[in-house]
Nucleic acid binder design. Sequence first.
DNA 1: AATTACATCTCGCCC
DNA 2: GGGCGAGGTGTAATT
Lengths: 231, 231
Amino acid sequence: MRLVIARCSVDYVGRLRAHLPLATRLLMVKSDGSVLVHSDGGSYKPLNWMSPPATLRVSEPDDADRAEGITEVWTVQHAKSDDRLVISIREQLHESSHDLGVDPGLVKDGVEADLQRLLAGQIELLGAGFTLIRREYMTAIGPVDILARDAEGRTVAIELKRRGDIDGVEQLTRYLELLNRDPLMAPVRGVFAAQQIKPQARVLATDRGIDCLTLDYDAMRGVDDSASRLF
Amino acid sequence: MRLVIARCSVDYVGRLRAHLPLATRLLMVKSDGSVLVHSDGGSYKPLNWMSPPATLRVSEPDDADRAEGITEVWTVQHAKSDDRLVISIREQLHESSHDLGVDPGLVKDGVEADLQRLLAGQIELLGAGFTLIRREYMTAIGPVDILARDAEGRTVAIELKRRGDIDGVEQLTRYLELLNRDPLMAPVRGVFAAQQIKPQARVLATDRGIDCLTLDYDAMRGVDDSASRLF
DNA sequence: AATTACATCTCGCCC
DNA sequence: GGGCGAGGTGTAATT
């Protein structure tokens, strides 16, 4: 990885066009040819960038550029598209190179897949007498997160979200509509389960006869102690 | 902005939990307290990060950490939530600080990719005899992208997307439901137009009697040469 | 390789 | 502040 602090202007041409006026920025060149242009603020998204795979070519400025004080022109060309980033450098204030090696990568816990695994193992959270039919029940319009059977023997489709908003209710509604067309399966009722359910989503779900269930991930993780031994 | 290259492990606890095993990485500390942990690959997204506003506290390792070779512990605490990033540093290979100033920010030129403007000007793409009623036709639940009239004099609501997926079909369905409540306007039919339409979206649209239209942006741009003269 | 759905999405906009 | 829509989305899993 190469780190450069430079006064520069940047132009991107590709799926859109974008321009960064002259200012001092961090240029990060990664070993796969990708380049990130960061300012001293904002969040993790760079001001501008080129995704890998890409190649960086450093060239001399032409006469017009030189007259404007540009000392070096970086052309970062994407390997598989016409996307191009051109960095015009006026002054290089810092430069260093570092060998970082390959990163072992991130281990995550608490994403939707973890929620689904936990709820499938604690299906009684939905109510006494509930039994699991299966996870990821495939339909023509996508997989139903969890299919279960309630104490009365009725089929229940469960849609799981980390944050439950209107889109999730719409999704579950489509599944219910489809499943209820199957006379062998109908009537199927729905449960919308999420760590947090937005008020509007709750209203919409209730209006459509869909039950809402707020999940306590920490408590569920505590019950399944294989999860708590992850770290 | 402070740049540190260090052998470190990282733990994030907040909306989820995540762990980065020991490796050499770039730590970028921005002046708003945000921290980015980058490896020498991937794309612009860091391996882990803390969004601003946040505060960085550097502390001595406890005895257990010291025994494992940790020399410094960085705790990055988000100012408005319980999100926390803990960086355990074994070895600091590089350190530098830079004053970048405030960035003037990005100027996007081609952002308006005005598919809508182009289609409104080439409304005959929808079929012979189509005429434009208006763009951004306001309703109580939001603007219909384009409202047109077909050769038979019937009103047509058009939803435009760059990438057409199920959400767009749902959106158009809500508009159609509303517009068809108006006896002066009903019956209104729908057209779902996008550069690319996902199979599931096409199935749903067809099932609801909504026509699908795939748009060739480059061809449309070629017809309207004012667009090709933008730059 | 292409498709699909999730994301600590981020980033605007408008209300 | 929340809600909605778009992104040069990125990313992982599955087909």
